[in-house]
Computed example of a mutant assay.
Amino acid sequence: MIYVIEAFHKHNELLAFEVELPTGHDLEIKNIMGWTAEQHGWEGYNLTDEQLGALEALLGKKVYDAAYLFQLSCNA
């Protein structure tokens, strides 16, 4: 599964940028997101500040900017 953090402009909701998370962290991502079922590859989830912070730690860099709304997408 490929996991991508997507940032959308708050004013027009257009995709501003996306950052792919490193592979090999499926279990950690599952725990961060609180998932109890396997993902299918078409899901998208709004991120809380806590979830985004934990995903940034996996990523190794900050992506947060108050101008954007953040989602996590799952792609098979």
Rank of each mutant, 00 (worst) to 15 (best):
G41P: 12
L27A: 01
W35L: 02
S73G: 15
P22V: 03
W35G: 00
M33Q: 06
L14Y: 11
M1S: 05
L27H: 03
E56C: 04
A66K: 15
V4M: 02
L47I: 02
E6D: 11
V19Y: 07
E28T: 09
C74W: 01
E50Q: 08
D65Q: 14
H40K: 15
W35S: 00
V63I: 02
P22F: 02
G24S: 05
I5Q: 05
F70I: 11
A67R: 13
E6P: 11
G24E: 08
L52Q: 11
L15R: 13
T36H: 06
K30T: 06
H25I: 06
G44L: 02
L27E: 07
G34L: 04
G44R: 12
Q51E: 07
G41I: 02
C74F: 02
N12W: 08
L69P: 14
D26C: 01
Q71W: 13
E13H: 10
E20S: 08
G60Q: 05
G24I: 01
L69K: 12
A54G: 00
N12C: 06
Y3V: 01
N46C: 04
I29G: 06
M33V: 02
S73N: 15
D26V: 01
Q71A: 13
M1Q: 03
A16D: 15
G41D: 08
E43K: 09
L15D: 07
A54S: 03
L72G: 10
E6S: 09
S73D: 15
N31I: 00
I2A: 03
D49S: 02
Y3E: 06
N31Y: 01
A66M: 12
Q71R: 15
K61P: 13
D49A: 00
W42M: 10
A37W: 05
K10W: 03
H9T: 05
E20H: 08
A76Y: 11
P22C: 05
S73A: 13
V63A: 00
L47D: 07
S73H: 14
N75I: 09
A37Y: 07
E38W: 01
T48I: 07
V63F: 00
A66F: 08
T48D: 09
Y68L: 06
E13W: 06
E20W: 05
L59C: 03
T23H: 14
G24K: 06
M1N: 05
A67S: 10
H9S: 09
A37L: 04
I32H: 03
L27Q: 07
G44Y: 04
N75G: 12
G24D: 06
F70P: 15
N46T: 09
V19S: 06
T36C: 01
G34H: 11
L47V: 03
D49K: 09
A37N: 12
W35I: 00
A37R: 13
N46Y: 11
L59R: 13
L15Y: 04
G44H: 07
L69W: 08
V19F: 02
E6C: 09
L52G: 07
A57E: 15
T36S: 04
K62M: 00
L52W: 09
I32Q: 03
D26T: 04
T36Y: 04
A67G: 09
H9D: 14
E18D: 14
P22W: 07
L15H: 11
